[in-house]
Amino acid sequence: MILGLYNYWIVIVLMMIGFYIMIAHGNLIKKIIGLNIFQTSVFIFYITIGKVDGGTAPILADGITRYSNPLPHVLILTAIVVGIATTALALALAVRIKEVYGSVEESEIQEKDNQKC
C-alpha cells in the first residue's frame, strides 16, 4: 500500500523540501531554487495521476488496449511553461535587486531599506 504509492511520497517529500527552502532561506537565488523544486513536485504529481498501470502511450496501434491518460501530461506541459516564465522573471528581478542593492541576501536588503527610511 505504502510502497505501491511511492511516487506520491516522492511528490510530498519534494513539495516539503521546496516549501521549506522558500521559507527558511534568506538568499534570493536559493528561494527561486526552492520554488522550482516545489513546482516540479506538482509536475510529477500531475504526471503520476495520468499514468495507468500497464498502459502505453495513447497511439492507435495493433495489439494495444490499455492507454495512459494523456490529458494530465498535456496540462502539465502548460504548467511547465508557466513555471519557466515565473523562474525567468524571478531571476531577472534578482539580477536587478543585486544591481541596486548590491546583495541578494534578504537580511542585507532589509537592512539597507531600513537605513534609508
Binding site: 513546482q39 506538482v42 528581478l93 541596486v100 531599506d113
Partner: peptide, 28 residues
C-alpha cells in the same frame, strides 16, 4: 524597493497559484 516588493509578491503569489494548481489536480 519596488523590485524587492515585486520579488516578495512573486514568491507569495506563485505559492498561492501552485496551491490552486494542486487543488485542480486533486479534483481532476
Amino acid at each position: 524597493r519596488a523590485l524587492w516588493a515585486s520579488y516578495q509578491y512573486l514568491i507569495m503569489g506563485t505559492i498561492g497559484a501552485t496551491f490552486i494548481l494542486i487543488s485542480i489536480g486533486l479534483m481532476y
